[in-house]
Computed example of a mutant assay.
Amino acid sequence: MKKLIVALLATTAAVSAVQAQEFTPRAYVGAGAVATDYESRVPGASRADVDTIKASGKIFGGYEFTPNWAVEVGHTDFRSADVYYTLGNVNASGQADGRASYVAAKFSSPLTEKVVGYAKLGASHNVNELNAINSQLNQRESKNTAYGALGLQYNINQDVSVIAEYERYGKSRDFGVQPDALTIGAKYSF
Rank of each mutant, 00 (worst) to 15 (best):
G61D: 04
G61N: 09
G61W: 06
G61E: 05
G62P: 01
Y63H: 10
Y63D: 08
E64A: 14
P67T: 09
N68E: 07
W69L: 15
V71T: 10
E72H: 12
V73E: 04
V73P: 01
G74I: 10
G74A: 11
G74K: 07
H75I: 13
D77K: 13
F78W: 14
F78Q: 12
R79I: 09
D82H: 13
Y84D: 13
Y84V: 09
Y85T: 02
Y85L: 05
G88S: 10
N89V: 06
N89D: 11
N89M: 10
V90T: 11
V90C: 02
N91L: 05
N91S: 08
S93G: 11
S93N: 15
Q95G: 09
Q95L: 12
Q95A: 11
D97E: 15
R99I: 07
R99P: 00
V103F: 07
V103D: 01
A105P: 01
K106V: 14
K106R: 15
K106I: 12
F107M: 11
F107N: 00
F107H: 03
S108V: 00
P110F: 01
E113H: 12
E113K: 15
K114Q: 15
K114C: 10
V115F: 08
V115T: 14
V116R: 09
G117H: 04
G117K: 03
Y118H: 07
A119P: 00
K120F: 00
L121I: 08
L121Y: 04
A123C: 09
H125D: 13
H125V: 13
H125A: 14
V127T: 15
V127A: 14
V127R: 15
N128H: 05
N128C: 03
E129T: 15
L130S: 08
N131F: 09
A132N: 07
N134Y: 08
N134K: 11
N134D: 13
S135V: 00
S135T: 02
Q136G: 06
Q136C: 00
L137A: 06
L137F: 07
N138C: 05
N138F: 07
R140W: 00
R140C: 00
R140L: 00
E141K: 11
E141R: 12
E141D: 13
K143M: 06
N144L: 10
T145Q: 14
T145G: 07
A146F: 14
Y147F: 15
Y147S: 12
Y147H: 12
G148Y: 11
G148W: 13
A149T: 00
A149D: 01
L150Q: 08
L150H: 08
G151K: 04
L152D: 12
Q153D: 08
Y154M: 02
N155L: 06
N157F: 03
N157I: 06
S161T: 10
I163V: 15
A164Y: 07
A164T: 02
E165W: 00
E165L: 02
E165A: 04
E167F: 04
Y169C: 02
G170P: 04
G170H: 04
K171E: 10
S172P: 11
